[in-house]
Simulated assay, not measured.
Amino acid sequence: MKVGIAAGYWGSGPPRNVDRMLAEAEALGVDSFWTAETYGSDALTPLAWWGSRTSTITLGTAVCQMSARTPTALAMAAQTVDHLSGGRVIVGIGASGPQVVEGWYGQPYPRPLERTREYVEIMRAVWAREKPVTYEGRHYQLPLDGGSGLGKPLKSIVHPLREDIPVYLGAEGPKNVALAAEIADGWTPLWFSPKSDEFYRAALAEGFGRDGARRSPSDFEIANVCWLGENDDVEKAAAKIKPVVALYAGGMGAKGANFHNDVFARMGWADACAEIQELYLRGRPDLAAQAVPTEMVEDVALIGPADKICEDIVNRWKPTCLTTLILGGWPRPENRERILEAVMS
């Protein structure tokens, strides 16, 4: 299993000490570095800024919001950073949910799987640069249908460094996971749990079995962000992550339309999720965080003292379908090498 590190998306401002963390990570043989976006910082600018300080580490987005850019715009950005980094980019994309897509980006949300398929096809046509790009889809048309009539098929001025930049799909539900296995080069889960490994393997197998599937299980990458909370007291370690779990399970989506809530419910936490969501939507995120069981955090994160974290990595996480464990937190200096070694050995 490979190991990555995540800077994620920003809170009220840039996270501190990312340059130092990234330099240490690259020196220790960490494979990849990942940024993200929701409705604040974007994923591409920090990736290019911090990535420019590196020379070997792979640079990935987990994920870029599809609704934030047209397919050609993201293809342009990806091939630009890929050139500047010497061919080290992974383009992770995701459909997000209706609250963000319609509320922040002002774009329609329905039929996200169909839209994802069209999006990826257009990006690959840009990078292939075989001819001017035309596309007739339900969601995207090049040139635009119903415009001025002056639209012209165009071919990228830039010759991509790589004509086939890896595309990973951020997915949580089984249909979207199957789509990732069918059309993408990798899958980026959110709130993956080792206890759900069999469920996800079945969804992936469905995608791999479809006619024209792009990859097979042997050359498909699965890179999961796993929160890391170090503390000799497991409860104190969990307390640092409970507000994040509460935000996603309770506040990232409307009642009845929260895909993160659905993920935790499938793990067996439906009752806890209902309480967390009710408290969050009532304006009490503090109480929602308190309602998150520690065991629920342990299902999706690495928490506790270093010995326990290493044991969990070896016994619970490494036997799963994951190929890369992206740490959502940088291990303490005194434990860093053995935690990384537990993943990579």
Rank of each mutant, 00 (worst) to 15 (best):
E121K: 14
G212Y: 02
G147L: 02
A6M: 12
G283V: 04
M344T: 15
M21Q: 15
P331E: 11
G209P: 07
G209Q: 02
A213R: 09
R282Y: 01
V343D: 08
V244I: 15
L44D: 07
N231D: 15
K175R: 14
Q290G: 12
R138W: 08
T45W: 09
P319M: 01
F208R: 04
L247P: 04
D219F: 00
H139E: 02
R138G: 12
A223L: 07
T70F: 06
S196Q: 15
T134W: 06
D31P: 04
E182L: 05
D82W: 06
R338G: 02
N17R: 13
L28T: 02
P132W: 04
G51V: 10
A43P: 09
R201E: 12
M1P: 12
P174Y: 00
L44H: 10
V91P: 13
I122R: 05
V63D: 00
G13D: 13
A213I: 11
V292P: 03
T323Y: 08
K155V: 14
T70R: 10
Q79R: 03
R115Y: 03
W269E: 07
K255L: 09
P305Y: 03
V177K: 00
K255C: 02
K318S: 01
S148F: 07
Y168F: 14
A205S: 14
P166W: 06
F220E: 07
T188D: 00
I303W: 09
V297K: 03
T70L: 07
E198V: 12
V100N: 02
P166I: 02
G328I: 08
G103P: 00
I183T: 06
I57Q: 09
R115T: 10
L287V: 00
Y39F: 15
A274R: 12
G87L: 05
D31N: 12
Y105L: 09
P143I: 04
E295Q: 11
A213P: 02
E278N: 10
